[in-house]
Design a protein around this nucleic acid. Structure first.
Lengths: 218, 218
DNA sequence: ACCTGAACACCGTTCAAGT
DNA sequence: ACCTGAACACCGTTCAAGT
């Protein structure tokens, strides 16, 4: 990020940092949907339009917020064994995102997370190369892991949100109740267990399966 | 869905079907963001509030839309070999969704697609069982495949949208330009190829890797 | 340079009333 | 039962003006 050089002019009353901090607090307290330019302006004690002097627009603010969050995460010490390192890095990526499910909203495009968390893709690509993949294969492996991870976060965050929206089991239960056992025998057979199974966290198992398929067998 | 029994009263001027058809057309033509209750009302020639007599609310409308779309898809004839069947079903699921990236918006929760496309999870769970997994394992396998698939769709749809928003390479290129080759040697090394690699469709390769890891080796 | 005030062009949804 | 009109409680962002 370019440091702004202050060369005179009116001193700023609100700073980019203050805006991001306030935004972060609002999101943490009330959810992403509650983050509006107007409420944020109230929070920092300024007009909505004052914000536009410090951030490009709302989506720029969200990017800043993601980065702010990423900065707070420290790079762990990785295992020596490359396959284990890859798994550990992916799990870290997952946990960092899962802790704040609002990031799902922002993620829906960029595949590198954030400038402040480049050590994550670096670790994964590096581990994949150490496992014997070419650089290009390693990038593709990273992308598959990223899709799986982002999908898990987004889907589970959405599921949690719907659960929180009290009308708890509106759609899926209705679907299961209506399942035609003649046409869909397997689904009918697991219908009773589906909700329980869907609640289980199987991120790691799926990841290990994916890694097993992506990496050369030793 | 419950069929509404008309027992007198004023005849309806607009039907649920007409609403869904108009909504589908708006979304196809102008994108999901352009679908508002007001524009939709204009399209069917009624007041915004008239719509609320036929759909619960906007998110109910989106669910209806997803189902409308799912109904148009025919179940293919699957390969006999179960592993191939599983792959084919997942690819179908992917292609159905990828054809209309707006579904990504709706997907962010329900893990069964739609009542009208239950044959898809059925095929995948069935194939997984035929490959030797228990029912519970098969459901977990389905969920991993679903996360990977939905993640791919959502991320790639988001990427395409940002590309369309003309300011083409706003964020990621900037990130790559600033990469510190000392700290992130692997990323710096692939930086030049990243955009090209990220543009490639590697859904199937990732899927096969995932399937290889999920299914027992024969 | 930084900030305000007023306005523009929208949203989804509720509520009371009309036929 | 179905639909309208008016209103409520919001949005993000532009633009011209103030200090």
């Amino acid at each position: 990020m370019v440091e702004r050089v202050v060369k005179g002019g009116r001193p700023a009353r609100i700073s980019r940092e203050a805006i991001v901090a306030a935004a972060s607090m609002l999101v943490e307290r009330d959810g992403v949907d509650a983050l509006t330019m107007r409420k944020l302006a109230d929070e920092v004690g300024a007009t909505p339009m004052a914000l536009y002097h410090h951030v490009r627009d709302k989506s720029g603010l969200l990017l800043l917020l993601l980065d702010h969050h990423a900065q707070a995460v420290e790079e762990p010490v990785w295992p020596d064994e490359p396959r284990e390192k890859l798994i550990a890095a992916a799990v870290t990526m997952h946990d960092v995102l899962a802790a704040r499910p609002w990031v799902a909203e922002v993620l829906t495009s960029d595949d590198l997370l954030s400038v402040s968390a480049l050590w994550l893709p670096e670790a994964i690509v590096d581990a994949a190369v150490a496992c014997g993949l070419t650089e290009r294969q390693a990038v593709h492996a990273y992308r598959s892991i990223w899709y799986y991870t982002a999908g898990e976060i987004i889907i589970r965050a959405g599921a949690a949100r719907r659960r929180a929206a009290e009308g708890a089991p509106p759609y899926r239960d209705q679907v299961f109740a209506e399942i035609d056992a003649e046409r869909y025998p397997q689904l009918a057979s697991v219908a009773g267990e589906w909700v329980e199974l869907a609640g289980q966290d199987t991120y790691r198992e799926g990841l290990e399966a994916l890694a097993a398929g992506l990496l050369p067998s030793e």
